[in-house]
Design a protein around this nucleic acid. Structure first.
Length: 858
RNA sequence: GCUCUCGUGGCGGAAUCGGUAGACGCGCUAGAUUCAGGAUCUAGUGGGGAGACCCGUGGAGGUUCGAAUCCUCUCGAGAGCACCA
């Protein structure tokens, strides 16, 4: 093997061991020894990993290096920095692996965690390992279950838009049934994605992944635990406002929640020739087009379908319902231009004009959105238009589009026509008026609808948190808090049962509780643990509470007027919606109930971009383009890996891996090393004679202070790539100098410390031993960050560009405070400029101070 | 289909406010040193041209003394949502 360009293979383990021994990055909580209340705090969080058997991939160190740089920088800036790490260790992959190998998931999880921890330590991240959390630890599970019970014992008070304890309702005389109907954690029969192969239900977003792996997934109604996240829909939208998140992520969340404003309209429906009338409520965002409704559509699952279907249509309606029942929501919403449906033979009365319109059943109307019924206005809705064309249904135009455009279907705003009392009104006004009319006549009301569904919270798995719930005579109740944590029993056989009871139903002893009660056998989804881990870090070993109140309010304390707690949260975009929405929801409930101090969990969010393979494709085993961080560390060292991941480009951007690029940054680090060390005849590293305790020259100070300024600003704005490039410039300049002032090199090393901490600590130690405390500090981790001196940056002479009609023609050198008039004269006097002005008349001269002079002439 | 993000050398990328396009790194070329080099150092490196110069930030227009940057249209890539009434 080729000899390394500098001895990182001895430097890196040495400093990792020392940071461990000296507990360099252990952070005190308020009241602990070493806590200084005068210091500001900074809570910098990484998305914790799922410790898979495959180990760390190069995507992990990207975000983790970015936060590590910020943390090391903030410590040097005098902050108390909370920088923790942990494991999101429950989940289906571990369980699947366990079933395959016969090993208990606890065993494989522990192995994977140990591997991940060792890998992360080899990268030199400055985590406070005393605060490590693992979602599968009994001490952690206890509080996950405790938080579930908070949800179970709470309801959402519409008037105040806050969660309140259900005990208040009981005190007001509410019945048990009434209370159960409003709990934030509740049982309901809902259509779920049940996989008989996996023996569990799946979240909608998990379906595709597991189907692709060859598992069957079907739709079936089951009694499941749900969390009432829909109650918080409006707050989850509104309270995004003051967060420092990328606009695109906020938008993604808003779209996911999917607020739409409109109205509910009640139609009377009747079977043709039948006696009985029924009311059907439809939701529409365009109540102003009510006069243009030419038919009504019910979702196939709609409960009134049977009531309105005539004898003649019974057969075809039943056949159609069977057909659609076989399709999943996924299949149904797949972009198929062909619309299908059948007439019921029933009709509806348009409440605004008494018109009789036919009632159809079609699967383009989803039972899960709105009321599962729509009024169809084919003239002004693309879908209704397509359907009407297919089945030859009437089309009535009731909105005049602006201008002359008379298309086949116009869905935009315009002016109402053929709409009685709405005629002549612009769409917005027409909406207001028709809603007022509907409300006055008891035919409908204003309504805001959200796309967001309640959160299906139970899974039929073994490797997850059991619900702290008991069943007595078919009624659920909370497990007493004193009995937490409730751990899953050790089972020899934790395979899926194939039934919705899940593997825990096999633990016949465990299920029995006392004489009468049985335990709930479902477990929580993997999201549960990740919903609150950032809170546990603030006080990870607390036995009395999920986190002590003082620790929680110190670390989560928001700055003036800010709603969020964690100062910086870095992770992948794949969690833009679900994890971040779920965590916000739990946090708000805890806040409403007085358990946490802020209304939002994460003030600032940054998404790191994906790292692609060297071929520009997504890394995958099948493509054979996966880069293993361990190999990179072995060949080039952890500092090189860290530095390269930051040098590749902007953090948020998607960018391809390059082995040559790693060599490049490795060369740079070797160059820094050679600022202080050189090789003797035998190839041993010895201190360089070029470095000396001499006063720096003006030029050296200038480049150094430029570098301090640039690196500091770039860390603040997380532009790590340009910070590194500036340090390269500085190093290249210093390498040319002889003698090199020790103080200048020492300062450069301080700037490099957050990026390449092993090398920085080693070089600093060498310099410290040689030049002493007065020139070089003994330790870097908490040494004050250098500050630049503007005085060192002023130049005697600067270059200004001279343009003629915007084209670069010459340059002049002038004093930085040169008056504009003088600059102008000097520019006009240039030989190279006169030539270009020949035969032209000068119209105007523009002088941008310290930058350029543009002569406009024709 | 809709929404968002992004198009700059051979490659990754710089250009923080509308003011010298291409910093820094990779790669490439030439040279020095070396027994040797996958080490190190020096110089060069957007395209065209002998040259003064000309062209150049996906394309076409526009605003401006001046545009990679702002506006309009258009093409292309990626991500998300996808019958949401």
């Amino acid at each position: 093997m080729a000899r390394h360009r500098y001895p990182f293979e001895t430097i890196e383990p040495k400093w990792q061991a020392r940071w461990d021994e000296e507990q360099t990055f252990t952070t005190p909580n308020p009241g602990d020894a070493g806590f200084d209340p005068a210091k500001p705090k900074y809570y910098c969080l990484d998305m914790f990993p799922y410790p898979s058997g495959a180990g760390l991939h190069v995507g992990h160190p990207e975000g983790y290096t970015a936060t590590d740089i910020i943390c090391r920088y903030k410590r040097m800036k005098g902050f108390h920095v909370l920088h923790p790490m942990g494991w999101d260790a429950f989940g289906l992959p571990a369980e699947q692996y366990a079933i395959k190998t016969g090993q208990h998931p606890r065993v494989t999880t522990e192995q994977n965690v140990n591997n991940f921890r060792a890998q992360l330590k080899r990268l030199g991240f400055s985590y406070d390992w005393q605060r490590e959390v693992n979602t599968t630890d009994p001490d952690y599970v206890r509080w996950t279950q405790w938080i579930f019970l908070q949800l179970y014992h709470a309801y959402f008070d519409e008037a105040t838009q806050r969660a309140r304890p259900v005990a208040e309702l009981a005190a007001r005389g509410w019945t048990r049934e009434q209370i159960d109907a409003v709990r934030l954690a509740f049982v309901a029969e809902v259509p779920v994605n049940w996989s008989p192969d996996l023996g569990t239900v799946l979240a909608n977003e998990e379906v595709e992944e597991w189907k692709a792996k060859g598992n069957k997934v079907e739709r079936r109604p089951l009694r499941q635990w749900n969390l009432r996240i829909t109650a918080y829909a409006q707050r989850l939208i509104d309270e995004l406002e003051d967060l420092d998140w990328p606009e695109s992520i906020k938008l993604l969340q808003r779209n996911w929640i999917g607020r739409s404003e409109g109205a509910e309209v009640t139609f009377l429906v009747k079977r043709q020739g039948g006696r009985k009338e029924h009311e059907v409520t439809v939701f529409t965002t365009r109540p102003d087009t009510l006069f243009g409704a030419t038919y009504l559509v019910l979702a196939p699952e709609h409960p009134l379908v049977d009531e309105v279907t005539t004898q003649a249509q019974k057969e075809s309606v039943a056949a159609y319902r069977r057909e659609t029942a076989a399709k999943s929501d996924m299949d149904r919403t797949e972009a198929t231009p062909k619309k299908t449906g059948v007439a019921t033979g029933g009709y509806a009365i348009n409440p605004v004009n008494g018109t009789r319109i036919p009632v159809w059943v079609a699967d383009y109307v989803l039972m899960s959105y709105g009321s599962g019924a729509i009024m169809a206005v084919p003239a002004h809705d693309e879908r209704d238009f397509a359907f009407a064309q297919q089945f030859d249904l009437p089309i009535i135009e009731v909105v005049q589009p602006p201008g002359d455009v008379s298309g086949s279907c116009y869905a935009g705003a315009g002016v109402a026509k053929a709409s009685g009392f709405l005629d002549g009104l612009p769409t917005a006004k027409a909406k207001e008026l028709i809603i007022a009319w509907l409300e006055a006549h008891g035919k409908g009301r204003r309504k805001i609808h959200y796309k967001l569904r309640d959160w299906l919270f139970s899974r039929q798995r073994y490797w997850g948190e059991p619900f702290p719930i008991l069943w007595k005579d078919g009624v659920h109740e909370a497990l007493p808090e004193a009995e937490l944590p409730l751990l899953a029993p050790d089972l020899d056989d934790f395979k899926p049962t194939g039934s919705p009871e899940g593997p825990l139903s096999k633990a016949t002893d465990w299920i029995r509780h006392g004489k009468k009660a049985r335990r709930e056998t479902n477990t929580m989804p993997q999201w549960a643990g990740s919903c609150w881990y950032y809170l546990r870090y603030t006080d990870a070993r607390n036995q009395q509470r999920f986190a002590g109140a003082s620790a929680e309010s110190y670390w989560m304390g928001a700055g003036s007027g800010k709603p969020g707690g964690v100062d910086l949260y870095v992770g992948g975009t794949e969690h833009a919606v679900l994890h971040l929405l779920y965590a916000r929801f739990w946090h708000k409930v805890l806040h409403d109930l007085g358990h946490v101090s802020t209304r939002e969990p994460f003030q600032k969010l940054v998404n790191q971009g994906l790292i692609l393979g060297e071929d520009g494709q997504k890394m995958s085993k099948s493509r054979g383009n996966v880069v293993n961080p361990d190999d990179v560390v072995a060949e080039f060292g952890a500092d090189s890996l860290r530095l390269f991941e930051m040098f590749m480009g902007p953090l948020e951007q998607v960018k391809p891996w390059s082995t040559k690029g790693v060599e490049g940054v490795n060369r740079f680090l070797a160059k820094v090393w050679r600022l202080v060390m050189e090789e003797d005849q035998e190839g041993r590293w010895v201190p360089s004679p070029s470095i000396a305790d001499v006063p720096p020259t003006k030029m050296q100070l200038k480049i150094l202070h430029q570098t301090i300024k640039k690196v500091t600003g770039d860390i603040e704005s997380m532009s790590f790539n340009t910070a590194i490039s500036q340090m390269m410039v500085c190093t290249n300049e210093l390498a040319k100098e002889d003698p090199r002032p020790a103080s200048v090199v020492a300062t450069l090393v301080q700037l490099l410390n957050p990026f390449a901490p092993h090398l920085a600590d080693e070089v600093n130690e060498i310099l410290h031993e040689r030049f002493g405390e007065s020139v070089v500090p003994a330790n870097l981790a908490y040494h004050p960050w250098p500050e630049h001196d503007e005085a060192c940056l002023v130049e005697d002479e600067i270059e200004m560009v001279v343009q003629v009609n915007g084209k670069l023609r010459d340059r002049i050198r002038v004093a930085p405070d040169c008056p504009q008039k003088t600059c102008e004269e000097l520019a006009l006097a240039c030989e190279g400029i006169k030539k270009h002005l020949d035969g032209l008349t000068i119209r105007k001269v523009i002088v941008v101070p310290k930058k350029l002079i543009n002569i406009v002439a024709n």
